[in-house]
Design a protein around this nucleic acid. Structure first.
Lengths: 303, 303
DNA sequence: GCTCGCCCCAAGTGGTGCTTATGCTTAAGA
DNA sequence: TCTTAAGCATAAGCACCACTTGGGGCGAGC
């Protein structure tokens, strides 16, 4: 088995024409070169250099080996270059999956910052609901999943909590729920309201998880909400409320980039927080591009 | 520094998708694969594989490395192939330099036998006088020099003797000198003659060395030969003798392939032997193709 | 629920590669 | 011709590395 290290030595010897000079070039002592050449000749099974008095000459096998060494060592350094580029964030791809409507403000900021900080990297974006995005993460279809959970409700969804305990969970943002009522609603001009005050209203809910959580919170407030509509699409929720079809409780973030028409936001009591987190596999957290993207998401969350 | 051995392991892991399977394929234990992969990841500076439950997946850096590994390992095995071909005499070039007129019978036989035994090898042939051919050997312009010497005259050419003591000297043939006289010569019908009987004849000499040796031998026989012509070309010598211009003493080998016209050979007393030897450098004697050619020359000499 | 397969971890061991020190050979210069 | 310098080979000493064995945790399939 010929080793690349030996070829490096052989090439240095061939170029300099001397063991000592090769040793200086390689940064080791002359006997080391001597031994490596002997080992190489042994593994080659034939002499590679001939000592004619003072000067060194290559045998035909030696010439053949030097000829191949160029390509082999070039390929090796090319491979090291590429790996170093990926490790040094001058290259690398990250596949990010975000929950629908989570990509409105947070993800664009993070993507822009990532591109600015590491121009060589490429981040692709897909949308998927939290249960599905975790599946994709485990299945190797993405490197980062942006999801959310409601930490204030301990027993609400134990499966979802325990589902993440083998993942790297990076907190991004704590998002509070705000109430949204039609302009003509009796509470529209109030600064805040309790959940119980909305007990009799028709509700417009969000995604299945949000809907489940809404029910839990309302039940803790003493009533079961009557849910007339449910949609993943937050602009649709806002539109429905604006049309006077009901009230809603939705994340502040969902309102950050839109101005609700025909509806008013009010603070809800008690405060309910939704925690947005970025998830990845423990091994992937070590990949430079993934770690960098996690950092950018966390930084975007701090604004 | 990425090592080729590591790439081999990585490729096996990537192909089989399992450390254990890779270990079986490589003929070692599973922890060995584990350690090599860890070492490779350390020298790469970034994770290369991610363990997602049961299955192994490559990171982007890992994929890049596997992609390069194909070319690198292919180059490495190609180099090993070529060296093995040279070492195994399926390839290899030998440059042979022979003294003029030594290539008439000996060299063709040896070349033919070499080609038959090792079809992949290529032997090139040049002609040069012994002092010059040794120079070429030492200067790296050939691998084997076919030369001759007169061992019976110890003090004749001490420089020539000591000139060879650091070379590999392979005896090929002991060639005796025979006399050549015109058909009409008084000794033409004798079986043999002493040198002294030709003391008064005009001589036709060969190359400078042979000429020098002829003078030495004749002086030991009690006379100084009168040399009218001297030429390297043995057919010319034969022609000159055939034309009745003088007598000559020439190696039996020079007469092996030609039938002298107008001249007769007679045995000379005392017997003078010319030793034909093949010379090479000690290191080159280890080169398979050179060693094989030396063998073929020696075998040709035994016929 | 149990067993099997796979991977990681730790400790022991043999081998390998490097270094320093020394001797020999060769080439150049006085 | 003698001296000096440079270069290669060898030997001893030593550190390091890689492989092996044995044990444990974990997930998958019957």
């Amino acid at each position: 088995m010929i080793e690349a290290r030996h070829l490096r030595v052989l090439r240095a010897v061939a170029r300099t024409g001397s063991f000592s000079a090769a040793a200086r070039e390689l940064g080791c002592t002359q006997p080391a070169v001597s031994q490596q050449m002997k080992a190489l000749e042994q593994s080659a099974g034939t002499p590679l250099i001939i000592r004619a008095g003072r000067e060194m000459r290559l045998t035909e096998a030696g010439q053949a080996l030097v000829r191949h060494a160029a390509g082999i060592l070039a390929g090796l350094t090319a491979a090291e270059e590429e790996v170093a580029a990926i490790a040094g964030l001058r290259a690398g791809r990250v596949r990010l999956v975000s929950f629908p409507s989570g990509s409105s403000t947070l993800v664009p900021t993070a993507l822009a910052a990532m591109r600015a900080a590491h121009p060589g990297t490429a981040v692709s974006l897909d949308e998927a609901e939290p249960p599905r995005s975790i599946e994709m993460l485990r299945g190797g279809d993405c490197e980062i999943a942006l999801a959310f959970r409601y930490p204030e409700v301990p027993g609400a969804d134990p499966a979802a909590e325990s589902e993440w305990d083998d993942l790297v969970v990076r907190p991004v943002l704590s998002d509070r729920l705000v109430g949204l009522v039609p302009e003509e609603h009796r509470l529209a001009d109030e600064a805040k309201a309790g959940f119980a005050e909305l007990a009799e209203e028709p509700w417009i809910a969000g995604c299945p998880r949000c809907r489940r959580h809404l029910v839990t919170v309302c039940e803790r407030a003493g009533f079961t909400p009557r849910i007339d509509f449910a949609t993943d699409d937050y602009p649709a929720v806002i539109g429905l409320v604006g049309a006077g079809l009901g009230v809603a409780a939705l994340p502040e973030l969902a309102l950050a980039s839109v101005r609700p028409k025909g509806a008013r936001t009010i603070r809800l009591e008690p405060v309910v927080q939704r925690e947005i987190v970025a998830l990845t596999l423990p091994d992937l957290a070590q990949v430079p591009a993934v770690a960098a993207m996690l950092d950018q998401l966390a930084a975007a969350g701090r604004r």
